[in-house]
Nucleic acid binder design. Structure first.
Lengths: 230, 230
DNA sequence: CGCATCGTTTCTGGATACAATCTACCCTCG
DNA sequence: CGAGGGTAGATTGTATCCAGAAACGATGCG
């Protein structure tokens, strides 16, 4: 009866049937892209007019974004785009380090050949997006890759949490991608992780995944701290 | 029609800041209390009429509840109260076992005397609520206790996640409380954890916390599985 | 007798209109 | 000249109304 909690992006794409969902997705992208910077106030009327719709779907979209932690709504005062403090970013990466490797160990042994094909195709796209400088594609691809790695762990709640963590990594990481060139390593590590799984060296793959997240963390926190200092 | 006239807590709590928030809270309580069982459909019109308000605040409340995982909204079909599968419950408790003890280790050394007083008062209330059979008070108290234990861990995202896990434990655990008598142990363990922290034996406290969660898990999963079989 | 199709009904999604609340500016008073 | 209060404008919250999708039932056809 109760379906395993699938990551929000999966279900959202299927139901672009309502205006609400479409607005939610659009606003989400624009916040992640940095078009709406943290601290900015989102006014319902302006957004409604821009989309050519009424305020009702806008309000519902803002509510969903608040649930995802992207905006903060205070009654009678409107919605403000939230930002992540350095402490929150560090916490998010620590959680990923703690949660993802054990889940990979559970999931890896159940990969089929088709799964490996998909993972390799994701790393390929990933590399291509990097070269092309498509920063917005990157977040989506990285999230898909990591979630696909954990797909068969059979821990619905854990996956839902990791999915949320990955989404929140997206914004700060795009900052990193624009500023730093430390992304070739990430791409290489992704490829290596898949290879280790396919070779049956699952523990090594899990260890590398942890190191991979740790690498991203130190590199990103440094840049993030720098950006927040200025 | 099928709506049993008016439960006492229907319209009386409507003097929050916004009607939306009041309805959200009211519905949340009624779902956690089991008044709205998993699987049943919540119709906007009926709820709006029962509260004596329009459908708009009801819709927004349902959206927030969906974000909290308490209902599932399918476009053009309405909102259904969700239930937790046995797998999800097991996953939730495993996550708590994994997350809470390290956070306690971080938090415990920063407890002040006032914090210990508050924790002891919570365990006292906890025991009193158990004796009085106040199943609904229990969830709130248990959640407060566990979150207070972790309060100074300085991991904002981790705490937010644990808070969500504790809320989702609430419903299944109320089931356990009604069925089982294995709650005196929980109360004793709470007291012990506080005592160990106060004695500076923080690692032991963290270990006991993990065991405490594990105990609750096995006891609850057994009952939950039994209930779902019938 | 079974099945497909069409109409009716019911419910949700969205638009428009109105009320309540907050913010900012200005005026008055000390 | 500064502080406090009040009013006007802007913005959000809620109600009412309309449109469109899904569920149900009836009816006609194979």
């Amino acid at each position: 009866m109760s379906a395993p909690a699938s990551p929000p992006s999966a279900t959202d794409r299927l139901r672009h049937k309502t205006v609400s969902a479409a607005v939610t997705e659009s606003l989400r992208q624009r916040i992640l892209n940095g078009e709406f910077a943290p601290g900015i106030q989102l006014r319902q009327d302006a957004l409604a007019e821009e989309f050519g719709i009424s305020r009702i779907p806008v309000r519902e979209a803002l509510l969903q974004l608040e649930a995802q932690g992207l905006v903060k709504i205070v009654p009678h005062r409107g919605a403000m785009v939230t930002g992540l403090s350095v402490e929150e970013v560090e916490d998010i990466f620590r959680l990923r380090e703690q949660l993802e490797p054990p889940l990979l160990a559970l999931s890896a042994r159940r990969f089929s050949e088709a799964d490996y094909r998909r993972l390799r195709s994701l790393t390929d796209e990933y590399g291509a997006a990097l070269e092309a400088g498509q920063v917005d594609r990157w977040g989506e691809l990285n999230r898909s890759f990591h979630l696909d790695l954990l797909r068969y762990a059979d821990r619905p709640r854990s996956l839902s949490i990791v999915s949320g963590l990955l989404q929140d990594c997206d914004r700060p990481t795009r900052l990193q991608l624009s500023a730093s060139g430390d992304t070739a390593r990430a791409d290489h590590e992704h490829t290596q992780i898949v290879a280790l799984c396919e070779a049956g060296r699952i523990n090594e793959a899990a260890d590398l995944l942890q190191a991979h997240i740790a690498h991203a963390a130190v590199s990103l926190v440094a840049i993030y701290r720098h950006a927040h200092a200025g």
